[in-house]
C-alpha cells in the first residue's frame, strides 16, 4: 500500500506542469524515502530528475517500493481539477493498476473529489548520473532566469551562457539580430533571494537549444532560486531546491561541427 498526503496539491501540479512539454510518460518511483522521478526526453537531449522527500508530505506510507507509470498529460488533466490549496492524497495498492487521487477543499470540507488514473507499464532507461565537479556555478532568482530565457528565445534558436568570474552573460543570435543579458555578481544585503551568486574556477561558455532551456525555466514557480552548474563539454545541471527535495534538469550542450 502506498499513500501520501500533500497539504497543497499545487506543489505536485507545478512539478508535473514543468515536465509536460518534453516528457510524455514518466515513472514515479515511490519508496520509504519519498517519491522520485527521472526521465529523458525522446531525443536524449534533456533529463529531468525530481525528488520529493518524505518530509514534503503531511503523511506518508509506502510498504513496498513501487513505480507508478503515468502519462503526464492525463495526470495533468486530473491535477488541474484541483484548487491550489486543496489537500491531495495519492493512493495505490501494491499490485494494483490504478493511482487514486483525492482532493479535499480546505475551505469547503464537505466537498471531496476522487479520480482514478490507469497506470502504465513504462519501459524506462535508468541512467546513472555521475558525481560531477562543476567549474562554474551561477545561482540567481528563478524569475530572473525565466525572464532572460523568455526574452532571448525570441531572438534565436540557440542561447549561449557565458560564466566568468565577474559575471554571467546570456546571448542569443538569430535572423532578426542578436541580444544579450549580462548579470554582475552581487549580494543584496538582507535580500538573499535576489542576489546573483557566481562561483567560477574557470570561465566556461556553453550553447543550448533555446526550446530546451525554455523547458528548464518552467519550474520557476517551484522555488525562488535556481542554480546553473557548468563545466566544459558536459551537460549543464540546472537545479531548483525544494523544501524537501529537488527538481533538476540535465541538458546537453550544443557542439559545433
Amino acid at each position: 500500500m502506498f499513500e501520501a498526503k500533500l497539504n497543497e496539491a499545487s506543489v505536485f501540479k507545478k512539478i508535473v506542469e514543468s515536465v509536460k512539454d518534453g516528457f510524455k510518460n514518466c515513472n514515479f518511483d515511490c519508496s520509504e524515502e519519498g517519491i522520485s522521478m527521472e526521465s529523458m526526453d525522446d531525443a536524449h537531449i534533456a533529463l529531468v530528475s525530481m525528488k520529493l522527500g518524505v518530509e514534503a508530505f503531511s503523511s506518508y506510507r509506502c510498504d513496498r517500493s513501487i513505480s507508478l507509470g503515468l502519462n503526464i498529460e492525463s495526470l495533468l488533466k486530473v491535477l488541474r481539477t484541483a484548487n491550489n490549496n486543496d489537500v491531495l492524497t495519492m493512493r495505490a495498492e501494491d499490485d494494483g493498476d490504478l493511482l487514486t487521487l483525492v482532493f479535499e477543499d480546505s475551505s469547503n470540507p464537505d466537498r471531496i473529489s476522487e479520480y482514478n488514473l490507469k497506470l502504465l507499464n513504462i519501459d524506462q532507461e535508468h541512467m546513472s548520473i555521475p558525481e560531477q565537479e562543476y567549474t562554474a556555478t551561477v545561482t540567481l532568482p528563478s524569475s530572473e532566469y525565466q525572464r532572460i530565457i523568455r526574452d532571448l528565445t525570441q531572438l534565436g534558436d540557440s542561447i549561449t551562457i557565458d560564466a566568468a568570474k565577474d559575471g554571467v552573460r546570456f546571448t542569443a543570435e538569430g535572423d532578426i539580430g542578436s541580444g544579450s543579458v549580462s548579470l554582475k555578481a552581487n549580494t543584496n544585503v538582507g535580500e538573499d533571494e535576489k542576489s546573483i551568486d557566481i562561483a567560477v574556477e574557470e570561465p566556461v561558455a556553453l550553447g543550448f537549444n533555446s526550446k530546451y532551456l525554455t523547458q528548464t525555466c518552467k519550474a520557476a514557480p517551484l522555488a525562488p532560486r535556481v542554480s546553473l552548474n557548468m563545466c566544459k563539454r558536459i551537460p549543464i545541471f540546472i537545479s531548483y531546491k525544494l523544501q524537501a527535495g529537488h527538481f533538476s534538469f540535465f541538458l546537453a550542450p550544443q557542439i559545433s561541427e
Binding site: L47, G207, F208, P235, F250, A252, S256
Partner: peptide, 14 residues
C-alpha cells in the same frame, strides 16, 4: 550550425 549532443554520451545506462 551547432549540433546538440546526446545525453546518453554522458550518462551510463544502468
Amino acid at each position: 550550425t551547432p549540433i546538440q549532443n546526446d545525453l546518453g554520451e554522458f550518462f551510463t545506462m544502468v
